[in-house]
Amino acid sequence: MKVLLTGAAGQLGRELARVLPEEGREVVPFSHAELDVADCPAVEAALEEHAPELVINAAAYTNVDGCETERELAYRVNALGPRNLAQLCERRGIELLHVSTNYVFDGTSESPYEPFDPPNPLSVYGRTKLAGEEYVMRLCRRWYVVRSAGVYGEGHNFVRTMLRAAGEGRSLKVKDDEYISPTYARDLAGAIAEIVSRGLYGLYHATNSGSCSWYDFAREIFTLAGIEADLSPIKSSEYPLPAARPANGVLSSPDGPAMRHWREALSDYLSREL
């Protein structure tokens, strides 16, 4: 199977470019600089030239706070890009897998969110990602949508930020009232490969198992790295940001791929990083 991969320079994109060939798939990777998914003629030309059987869209504008001020850019990349891919893939009979986020939910649920719980995004980022999902689901018949959360891998991410800040001797205050399932990009790429192998179209959640607050995540980073850090918990109300975040960002998927616990995944990641 030939796969055209967008967003190939991102954390997930890099892992997909490694994992998919191991699964026997030919991958044609495009970074944002090489292919802007919001540029419909450029997308059409890429599909014409490479004739993939599957497109995986890992391209996104993920600066959650930046989306609040750069709304047009967020909408172009997160909503219009998936629209273009959906329309063109449908026209050519190509399967489309689109990667989305837990930020489509408002975080008020007392239990983990399942795929068909009603979305209610709190931020521009969440709204534009939800719009992208809806375009894919409505305009393309052969689709997968995979939501994840707290993704980290090769590139700028929360784990590296914490390690760098501790190395600089900074005092760190991290929120203890927002919950996620931190997800290693390498594991997410493997889950996506499994979903594609099943060939069962639909909406999936894919995260490492278990959950924690961002504070607990940071504490575990330092514990596993053997670092003494000046770390203390803080409430979200004490650390206002331009974009609201869901207090409960934990996802569940009854028929999604089984993934290892987030602590095991984090230990694996740190063994590669340190």
Rank of each mutant, 00 (worst) to 15 (best):
L4V: 11
Q11H: 00
G13L: 01
R14M: 07
R18C: 13
P21R: 04
E22C: 11
E23N: 03
G24C: 06
V27N: 01
V28E: 08
H32N: 04
H32R: 09
L35P: 12
L35M: 11
L35A: 05
D39P: 01
E44G: 03
E44H: 00
A45D: 12
L47I: 04
E48H: 00
A51Q: 15
P52W: 11
E53L: 12
E53A: 14
V55Y: 08
A58D: 02
A60D: 06
Y61F: 14
Y61E: 11
V64H: 02
V64D: 03
D65P: 08
C67L: 11
C67A: 14
E70F: 11
E70K: 12
L80P: 02
R83C: 08
R83Y: 02
N84R: 02
L85C: 07
L85Y: 12
Q87F: 06
E90G: 14
E90W: 14
I94N: 15
E95F: 15
L97V: 02
V99R: 00
S100Y: 01
T101W: 02
T101A: 03
T101M: 01
Y103P: 12
D106W: 04
E110C: 00
S111K: 11
P112N: 05
P112V: 04
P119R: 13
S123E: 06
G126N: 03
T128K: 11
K129Y: 01
V136R: 10
C140D: 10
W143V: 07
V145K: 10
G153I: 10
G153A: 01
G153D: 02
G155T: 03
H156E: 15
H156M: 14
N157Q: 11
V159H: 05
T161K: 15
M162P: 13
M162R: 07
M162A: 15
R164V: 15
E168P: 09
E168Y: 14
G169N: 10
G169D: 09
S171T: 04
S171P: 00
K175A: 14
K175L: 13
K175D: 05
E178D: 02
E178H: 12
S181P: 10
P182V: 05
P182N: 08
T183S: 04
A185Q: 04
D187I: 06
D187T: 13
I192F: 11
I192R: 09
A193W: 05
E194W: 13
I195Q: 13
V196L: 08
S197P: 10
H205D: 07
C212M: 03
C212I: 05
S213M: 05
W214M: 15
D216Q: 14
F217L: 10
F217S: 08
A218H: 00
R219H: 01
I221W: 13
A225L: 12
G226A: 13
G226Y: 14
D230T: 03
D230E: 03
S232P: 08
K235V: 15
S236M: 08
S237K: 12
Y239I: 15
A243M: 02
P246E: 05
N248R: 10
G256R: 06
A258R: 12
H261E: 08
A265L: 04
S267V: 07
L270H: 03
S271F: 06
E273Y: 12
